[in-house]
């Protein structure tokens, strides 16, 4: 009889444990239903941030991708961009977008969204962490694009497609180095007629990253693109800049970075969703 009693106790305990496990599982699954709060619209600060990041990338006509090659201790980071902005009044449009997000979108989603974008408006620049590289523009019209380099950049690969026919290339300020240097640059430039453009007879080579280099492409009947590389006033060594006037250019710039850390690209725009605040992260890779 004692044995029977022990069996009964053991089986009862096992059944109760089974019930408890089932209950815990059910609770962990969130009871599979939506609460009233969840039924609302956008449900987290993270989703709003991701949404706004995509809007900002579209506003800048900017795409970012990266590939980490640990075996080679290298990171390939590519920016796909068009300069200048196709918007007639980009500053006004940017202000209208932020007002729309803070007012209309906040109200529609029942979220308290506010943005601090003063720094970005003054200097529309995004930062690549942890490589201490900035990618930005002199203003929201994106006529001048500057990559403020660092010694982590060993190679720029630039694909440029111009909207004008180029009839003159002046590269008197551009010096290819006869010997290897810490900075290699490769150009793949085509004008609107599909003509390939060479810089002093070359498409690729080494330059001294501590000296100033530039070349000018002049279009027909008008339009100019000035490309600068190396040591740029106000930006330091290993930098690269594009200045467009009266023409548009699709510019895909790939940076080869020395390192194995993945990149995080963020804009100096603070977004607060209800009580949560964060910088706008445009890309992680």
């Amino acid at each position: 009889m004692k044995r029977g009693f022990v069996y009964a106790v053991i089986f009862t305990a096992l059944f109760l444990m089974l019930l408890m496990v089932a209950r815990i599982y059910l609770l962990s699954e969130g009871s599979m239903g939506l609460s009233k709060a969840e039924k609302g619209s956008v449900d987290s600060a993270g989703l709003v941030m991701a949404d706004l990041s995509q809007d900002l990338l579209h506003f800048l006509d900017l795409g970012i991708e990266s590939k980490t090659l640990p075996a080679a201790s290298r990171v390939n980071l590519t920016f796909h961009n068009t300069i200048p902005s196709e918007l007639t009044y980009p500053g006004t449009e940017f202000g209208e977008w932020t007002a729309f997000v803070e007012n209309d979108f906040s109200e529609k989603t029942n979220l308290n969204i506010s943005m601090n974008y003063v720094d970005f408006q003054l200097r529309p620049t995004i930062t690549v962490s942890p490589y201490n590289i900035t990618y930005g523009y002199s203003a929201l019209d994106r006529r001048r694009l500057v990559i403020n380099g660092s010694s982590a950049i060993t190679n720029y690969s630039i694909v440029m497609r111009l909207s004008s026919n180029i009839n003159e290339t002046n590269a008197s300020n551009w010096s290819w180095s006869a010997t290897p240097t810490p900075l290699f640059i490769a150009f793949d430039i085509e004008d609107s007629e599909g003509e390939r453009i060479l810089i002093n007879g070359q498409e690729a080579g080494y330059i001294d990253p501590s000296t100033y280099n530039s070349f000018v492409l002049s279009g027909t009947p008008s339009g100019r693109m000035v490309v600068e590389a190396g040591s740029l006033p106000g930006y330091g060594n290993h930098s690269l800049a594009f200045n467009a006037s009266d023409l548009r250019a699709r510019i895909d710039t790939t940076l080869l970075l020395n390192g194995t850390d993945g990149v995080t690209v963020f804009a100096p725009i603070w977004v607060a969703v209800n009580e949560q605040q964060s910088n706008l992260i445009l890309f992680r890779g």
Binding site: L34, K39, G40, S41, V42, L47, D51, L52, Q54, D55, H58, F59, W97, F100, V101, F105, K108, T109
Partner: peptide
Amino acid sequence: VIYQRTFL
């Protein structure tokens, strides 16, 4: 369910 997002 309802989900909303902005776009330009």
